[in-house]
């Protein structure tokens, strides 16, 4: 563990908070079920809650002793990588939303180009070449070769007509 993460007590609480939130939801959701349906989950959830309690107490003690701060530095840092990271998550989310309408090939090409730009690639020539290659390979593997049900858009429809493939 890095020294920095030792100090960011707030960051260390994110996973326990998520786990606790889920455990509470789980307990509420299974309350009315038969014992066979909930025995295992109750057992696991109970142990998880106890472990989280110990962790919170441990981190609280660290804070009380002045050994940590209630910050999120270890989670968000280094600061210079944060914009690229957030952009990558945002672009991925946009990809997931757009792919049912635009189809795999076009959405992937656009998302790849945006992601490369967000990562700091300045050359548009390189950017477009990589984006095109990745999209073409994805089309070749996922649609042409393995015939998965990936969402179809204008590119897939045109290519399917050109290649006379029927789906």
């Amino acid at each position: 563990m890095t020294k920095e993460s030792n100090k960011s007590v707030g960051a260390d609480l994110v996973i326990p908070a998520l786990a606790l939130g889920f455990a509470v939801y789980f307990f509420v959701d299974i309350a009315g079920l038969a014992w066979e349906a909930k025995a295992n989950g109750v057992l696991i959830g109970a142990v998880l809650v106890v472990l989280i309690g110990i962790q919170v107490a441990r981190l609280g003690l660290q804070l009380a002793r002045g050994e940590g701060s209630f910050g999120f530095e270890s989670l968000l840092g280094p600061r210079e990588a944060l914009p690229a990271r957030l952009a990558l998550v945002g672009i991925t989310l946009a990809f997931i939303v757009a792919v049912p309408w635009l189809g795999l090939t076009l959405t992937l090409c656009l998302a790849m180009s945006a992601a490369l730009r967000a990562m700091g690639l300045k050359s548009w020539k390189k950017n477009l070449l990589i984006s095109f290659l990745v999209a073409a390979l994805a089309w070749g593997l996922f649609i042409a070769l393995l015939e998965t049900d990936m969402p179809h858009g204008p590119v897939e429809i045109v290519l399917s007509k050109i290649l006379h493939t029927s789906r």
Partner: peptide, 23 residues
């Protein structure tokens, strides 16, 4: 904590006897 969090996530879905959905 990580392991038990994973185990609890693994319980999501219908149970093996009555097929009732959980979480």
């Amino acid at each position: 904590i990580a392991g038990f969090f994973g185990l609890l996530l693994g319980v999501i879905g219908t149970d093996h006897i009555y097929n009732t959905p959980r979480a």
